[in-house]
Nucleic acid binder design. Sequence first.
DNA 1: TTCTCATCTGAAACCGGTTTCAGATACTGT
DNA 2: ACAGTATCTGAAACCGGTTTCAGATGAGAA
Lengths: 346, 346
Amino acid sequence: MKKLTISAIAELAGVSKATVSRVLNGYPHISQELREQVEAIIAETGYQPNQVARSLASDRSNIIGLVIPKGTDAVFLDPYFPALTNGITQVSNNNSLTLALFIFHSEQEGHDTIKSIVNTGLLDGLILTTDRVTLDRTTDPFVPQLIERDMPFVMIGRPDNLQDDIIFIDTDNAEGGYLATRHLIDLGYQRIATISSKHNSAGDDRLAGYRKALDESDIAIDWALVAYGDYTLESGYKGMKKLLPQQPDAVFVASDTMALGALRAIQEVGLKVPHDIAIVGYDDLPPAIQATPQLTTVRQDVETLGGMAVEMLLDAIRGDKSGIRHVFLSSKLIIRDSCGAVQKQA
Amino acid sequence: MKKLTISAIAELAGVSKATVSRVLNGYPHISQELREQVEAIIAETGYQPNQVARSLASDRSNIIGLVIPKGTDAVFLDPYFPALTNGITQVSNNNSLTLALFIFHSEQEGHDTIKSIVNTGLLDGLILTTDRVTLDRTTDPFVPQLIERDMPFVMIGRPDNLQDDIIFIDTDNAEGGYLATRHLIDLGYQRIATISSKHNSAGDDRLAGYRKALDESDIAIDWALVAYGDYTLESGYKGMKKLLPQQPDAVFVASDTMALGALRAIQEVGLKVPHDIAIVGYDDLPPAIQATPQLTTVRQDVETLGGMAVEMLLDAIRGDKSGIRHVFLSSKLIIRDSCGAVQKQA
DNA sequence: TTCTCATCTGAAACCGGTTTCAGATACTGT
DNA sequence: ACAGTATCTGAAACCGGTTTCAGATGAGAA
């Protein structure tokens, strides 16, 4: 079967290429008669315009890129990226966008690729994710290039150095930290510790939420009850080890993975959760349910996050400056067994 | 900054577009002098050719597609797809390929998208994955279309109805099943059960490996010791419940997730692993290490799988018929605690 | 010296669409 | 009936590259 081109269709329909193009793109001023004539031929032949030629002529590829700047490890240690990707593809599909995936396995690779992405004009826009685990991400190396080249992009995760003209979406980490801590306070715990993480906005914000909840209840912050980890299970374990001598009766841990480590530390010294120490985690990953006891945790709707990112990017590509440029998505507290709420009610 | 085009470069270098194009593509018959002249300008300006125009003219986009035909759930319940994606992007990056990701959230969506993928000529080729969990995948709806349209593709996972002209790569599931079972036999277990899965080639092959190992040791297969699951934790749990009355002293479970379920079932009735019943799993997912006891399991190198798939696809795109068309990747037994090997040695 | 032939280069066609521009037609209002 | 305007359509230019083709140049052979 030979390839169908717009010229072939034009000939078959007895009109010009221009007319076929106009029908294809739903232009207004076309007589009903011709339009139907052309549409009939298109339906009959199953013609679909060549995407590449279209891109060249219209300077729009309908391809957006998803940038994940990290190698092996983190990408699949937790379902964050898969969930995100899922949300993104869903909305992309609905908008007839093609998603190009860029995973960088080294900094050099990222550098080179971004450069060529920007220069070769294949993409209409980019969604940038940041490494959630990296402790120092003060400077995203790509952003200046993108801005200089006028490449529309949206960031997932609040950039550390907040610039007003950068479009981003994030979960409301401060709210999440607040909800978790508030919940523990409401349950009557007195010495509420936390394991957070330094040097990244998510950790900072969750800690800020923790402090706000304490403040609200006129509980002075006790820095001996604050430990830091790096989102790994080990760091949660070590953090809890450090906190245990302070005899907290509850702990808000800024990630489920760390919470699992903390849980292990607690159980190792013979204490019971939630009876002796209550735990609230963060993320609501599958292991949270599999743990014993099941983890009370803060759930972020990562899929929605991804979907909204695509929509915001589309606005930016269309040049719609009126669109929403900064979004903080609400989080939700999922109450299970590790916080003791269930037991207290019973 | 105005966009650089090949014409601009040609003018700057004082040559024709054609010459610049030839330099760009490393054509042979160009005088050293002109070549250097052009290269100097290119380096100076940082010019990079427009990918879209190039695609249109050369009928090659350097974009390949990765098709994942499934919705939400399975994509992130296990790290299979993330690992696969990782391997694929790695090799893609090395070959200056762009990877387009297609995740279908419904059958209809998949159908429509494939159609337009094939027709609009944006992609050079496709990597097709199959739903590992789906029980009935006898017919892949895309394959006939792809063949008809001459779209190069490679399948990941052996197609059920093996056609010689289809390029595919898979892990050697039969070997994996064999290794696991053989190991249990060598450890002296007598009543070795298995939980496999029906209606998909991976399950079939793992079971075949199990049978081969038994055969080799002249152990007659006892169908009462064979249960089936669907790769979920629950199905592993149920499968084991069914097997327990048969009093097996070991069980080969065709997925780690199911093995975890089986483990729970065993522990629930007060039996100890590996003392009372040994377990060998499959996949070597992170939970395998977190389990107590740690799971002995069969590891598949999914990343390599993805990488090789890209290379095979490249061969196919280049029209290289001599390339390898069917690959079965070796698996490896990872010995930990749940099989009892460690204890027996001590 | 002259004729071939290989090597190198540029003009122009081409890939398959979109978009500008101007001409044709039909529809107003006077 | 006629100018003026709105609506519709096609020819041709254009997007930014690649590739064909033929002409120019220079080296080697006769």
